[in-house]
Design a binder for these strands. Sequence first.
DNA 1: ACAACTGATAACAAATTAGTTATCATAAAC
DNA 2: GTTTATGATAACTAATTTGTTATCAGTTGT
Lengths: 101, 101
Amino acid sequence: MAKKVNTFREYLNDEERVSPEERALIEFDVELIGKLIEAREAKGFSQRELAELSGIKQPAIARIESLKSKPQIDTLVKVLRPLGYKLTITPIQERPARSHK
Amino acid sequence: MAKKVNTFREYLNDEERVSPEERALIEFDVELIGKLIEAREAKGFSQRELAELSGIKQPAIARIESLKSKPQIDTLVKVLRPLGYKLTITPIQERPARSHK
DNA sequence: ACAACTGATAACAAATTAGTTATCATAAAC
DNA sequence: GTTTATGATAACTAATTTGTTATCAGTTGT
């Protein structure tokens, strides 16, 4: 019988449901899109206002923010621009090996 | 009669052909994808090798590197991972007002 | 109660991307 | 010269995203 999961986090950490590679991608998405949402709210923009400013329609923004679509980079760039942000390629910082006591 | 252009740069700076917004997007693409290409070559990977490592097919990588497609973010992330890079949202730094002498 | 605004979503068409397979011209290695 | 490897590309299918329009339930303010 399948394990019962109650939270998204539990679901994400269930290896039988989500492979490690998949989880890494999902976690990355959550972090990246989370930043987008925070930036929009920090500016006090509604999705409709951001749609006006970016040229990307409100339903598309809603789909992106709810992780229902994986946007194309130029779409993401257009949405980020009125928020004062851009996309950058940066090195993957190694997770510092936790020193055990 | 249409101006003759000889270089990509001339084309890009011709306001009658490329609007400022469009130019900004293109310049961004060139910079971003340029970094991807540099990273791949720095690792000494061929497109075929990177395809193996990333799970993205070689023709797709070629289309991305030649700016013939605007990849989806998860595609770009998958390609960047074996190169040791990731996508990040960063603030747009203001172009420092050039002090005139 | 009502109006106004919010994010989410349905439904469909149009556009775009990636997968797939094969091939090409070029350059390098032998 | 003949392999061998390279990036680019053609042609087609399948999958996905976005545009478009309309609407929904929930919240906030009056």
